[in-house]
Structure formats: C-alpha cells, structure tokens
Design a protein around this nucleic acid. Structure first.
Lengths: 199, 199
DNA sequence: TGTACATCAGTGAACGCGCGTTCACTGATGTAC
DNA sequence: TGTACATCAGTGAACGCGCGTTCACTGATGTAC
C-alpha cells in the first residue's frame, strides 16, 4: 500500500494525459467566460500544472483554441450524423440536434464560429475542412429530396436559419416566456412551409 | 492670421468633440480587429489624446463598448425603417437592408450581439430596449400580413434566418464563387415559399 | 471693457495586474546491453 | 536482473508588454461683477 501510494504521487509529476486535461480545462473556461476568458495560464492553473508545461503539447494559446474548435466540429458532425434519419428524410431532427449541441456548448460553439479567436476559425485548415464536412451533411441530405438546382440555396437557407436560431438562443434572446423546444420545432416547420401567405 | 493660427493650436487642448472622436476611433478599431481589439488606450492613441482623458466622457472601457452597441442598434433600426415598404408589405427589402448593415459594419455588428464584450449586449438597459425595438419592427411588419397566431413563430423564424445569414456572410463562409447579392435574395424568397417539396 | 475666479477638459506619471512566452533546469521513464 | 543513458515531460524564475485605471496637476473657457 505505501508502494501504491508512492507510485500515485510519482505519477503526478508526469501527468500522463496532460493534453486532454488542458483541452478539458479550456472547454470549461470557454463555457464559464466565453472565448475571451480563454487563457493559457488559467488553463494550466486549473489542471494544477505550471504554465510552460503546456508548450510540450501546444505551440501557443492559438493552437489550443484551434484544437478546441476542431474538437467542437468533430462532435457536431457526429451529433448530426447520429440524428440524421436516413429513413424519413426529415430535416427537423438534424436541426434540433444542431441546436442542442450549441445549447450544450455555447462557449465552444461561439469559438467555432470565430468569436474572440479569429485564428481558431480561420487559420486552421483542419477546422475549415471540418466545417465543410458539417455543411456537406446538410447538402447531401437535401440532395436526396430536391432537384439539383434548389440544393445550394436550400442548404444556405437551412444553415443560416439554424445557425441564427442557435445563436439567438445561446444569447438568451428568445422570448423566455415560451417553451424553447416548442419554438424551435415550430420554426423548423416553417422552414418547410414558408411564411404563411396572407389568406 | 497668426491669431487664427494660435486659436487653432489652442483649441487642440480642449478637443471640443472628444466623445464623438473616441467613439469614431472605437468603431474603426472594431472594424479592423473585431471586438477583441477594442482598447481604451488604443482609442485614445488614435484620437491623439492621453488615455485618462477618456474618463471625462466614459466611466470605463465597458461604457465605451455599450455606447458603441447603442449607436449600432440605433443605426440598424433607422436602416430597417428606411427600407420597410409600407406599400408592398414585402419583407425582402428589410432583410436585405439588415444584411447590408451587418456587411458594412461587421465588427460593430458582432459587438452588438455579444461577441467579446458581453457587457455591451447584456448589461445595458438602453441596448436591450433598442434591440427590442429592432425586433418589433419585424413583428409589426408581420402583423399586417399574418394571422395573429402565426406572428411570433414567423418573427423568430425571420430574425434567426437573417441574423444567421448576416453572420455567415460576415464570417466569409459563403461559397464565394456565387454572387452574394443573388444568394441573399434567393434565400429570402425561400423564406416565403419554404423548402421545395420533393415533387 | 477688464479682471477674478469657478469650472471643465485635458495632461504625465504611476499603480498593479495578468498575460504569453523563453530559458536553463530537473525529475521520471523506458530502452540497450 | 541490474545498470547507464537518452529521451521526454515537467519545473521555477524571469522577460517584456499592454492593459485599465487613479492621482494630483495644469491649461483653457466662460461667467459675474
């Protein structure tokens, strides 16, 4: 038992999974204070490690932001894939999954779209590729259902609607007296029918 | 002439319109580097004035951000009013005016919606009221055309679509090979018709 | 018309702070023999 | 199985920086008499 104990203490010097721990702390920071609050020193502090140790895993704070954005897009794509109903071809589930992701990770979602760290959304080819992949999920879904000429407009239309709705909700700008889940569903329904014509 | 000259030099000590000058520099900064680049010292530097002088006009940097957001919402509401065609009842012109504003002032637009300076979008009652006014422009326009039950959903639908589209464009995430103006118009048209049904 | 004075809008110097990053180091790990 | 050593992942101290803000001040303005 003293042996095990000593081993546990020793193993604290070499963290073992510092990279993951740093990213985890970064995400927590992101959710608590938004992209602006992301700080290398604070991340290290939270993990209980000296600041320079981060440089064994990331070249800079920007690199951390980029890694976080990558993580975010990867998870978003997964969530979209999981929600996409090959059978029905309905779009609403994917839209709701998208918004659920944004609501669960508002700070990360903002980072992914360039809030604060422009570098994270712009400079990284990996992030660009992942964002493209997310977008293609939407397009390929539409391709099954629509004439080819309509696809590009419909994809942009859907993406803008979903992105905007996600941000408005994250920002707390939804009329809070109403059930958000119901509002979201109604909005997506209206995407299918269009704004009702005046009789 | 020497008299005038002296006077001109003297008048440089008392700036005369420092508040406006500071806001102007703030906006320039916003457009160059985004909300993150907003800095009291840099603003003062650009105006050619010492940093503490700003405190005769604003209580803090946050107060400057708030004032800028207020300015932005005021201008946005004006742009919407100007574009709203009482006659036709068409929605597209207002949507296009909204997006034109965001494209012309991307940094300011981001600030208005909480990017970077949460205080500017959240803490100020004036900003909240202005944002509400902008939203009511949309709603009142719809009220003329729609059954009352549809208005709240349609308003949120339109706002989310427009907000999302504006941000995607600002972020440069539009497929750049296409004419943006045409894309915008098509997307707004689809808001009226809905996504085409599969034959 | 001229002068005294309160008021206001600027100034320079200084504060403490937290940041990202670099440096020379040391402790732990794993591999070759 | 034990030892030498290269490699890797951590450390503390220090760097320079720019920031927001406070302070005691001074120069300019406008008003009362």
């Amino acid at each position: 038992m003293p042996r095990t104990q000593r081993k546990a203490v020793q193993s604290r010097y070499h963290h073992g999974a510092l990279r993951e721990a740093l990213l985890g702390a970064g995400r927590a920071l992101l959710e608590e204070g938004g992209p602006r609050a992301l700080s290398l020193r604070e991340i290290a502090r939270r993990v209980g490690v000296s600041a320079p140790s981060a440089y064994h895993h990331f070249a800079s704070l920007d690199a951390i932001a980029i890694a976080l954005a990558e993580q975010g897009f990867t998870e978003l794509v997964q969530a979209l894939d999981a929600a996409t109903p090959a059978a029905t071809g309905l779009l609403t589930p994917a839209g709701e999954a998208y918004i659920a992701f944004a609501r669960a990770n508002p700070g990360l979602y903002r980072l992914m779209f360039g809030d604060g760290f422009l570098a994270a959304s712009t400079a990284s080819a990996a992030v660009g590729a992942l964002r493209k992949r997310a977008y293609e999920r939407v397009e390929s879904n539409l391709q099954k259902r629509l004439a080819a000429t309509h696809v590009p407009t419909a994809a942009l239309f859907l993406w803008a609607l979903t992105h905007g709705l996600a941000l408005l909700i994250i920002d707390g700008q939804l009329n809070s007296s109403r059930d958000p889940q119901a509002m979201i569903r109604q909005v997506f329904q209206m995407a299918g029918t269009g704004i009702p014509r005046p009789a």
